[in-house]
């Protein structure tokens, strides 16, 4: 169960009060009717699903009701930052790579140092 800092409520609250809302910083074209198929594909369908830092949207649906953005590490689930909708994407330096990536799930389990 995540603990999420709501930038509007200025407090950490249980994930139970929130709902995830997908990737952040994907701008809907102001002229969407005119964009190409490729542009629409990129806007609507294509996502990175990164291992590591992701910028994503959350809504404090059972709290203040506001949508906001978060930078979260998808490996550790650690939130690096949450910020209000409309604020620019923060310039976060990616965390230094840890040990060499191991590709199998089994090998990931309890990989001792």
């Amino acid at each position: 169960m995540l603990l999420i800092y709501c930038p509007y409520c200025e407090e950490e609250r249980s994930e139970l009060e929130f709902r995830g809302a997908g990737d952040a910083h994907i701008a809907r074209s102001t002229n969407i009717a005119a964009i190409s198929d490729e542009e629409f594909e990129a806007y609507f369908f294509l996502r990175e699903n990164p291992k590591g830092m992701i910028f994503e949207r959350w809504r404090h649906i059972h709290g203040c009701g506001r949508f906001f953005n978060a930078a979260r590490d998808t490996v550790s689930d650690r939130f690096v930052k949450t910020y209000k909708a409309g604020e620019p994407k923060p310039d976060l330096h990616p965390a230094p790579a840890t040990a060499a990536t191991v590709e199998t799930y089994e090998a990931l389990e309890g990989d001792a140092q």
Partner: peptide, 13 residues
């Protein structure tokens, strides 16, 4: 309502 709020808050604020 969630869908409407999404557009209202983030696309048409």
């Amino acid at each position: 309502l969630h869908h409407m709020e999404d557009y209202l808050q983030t696309e048409f604020p």
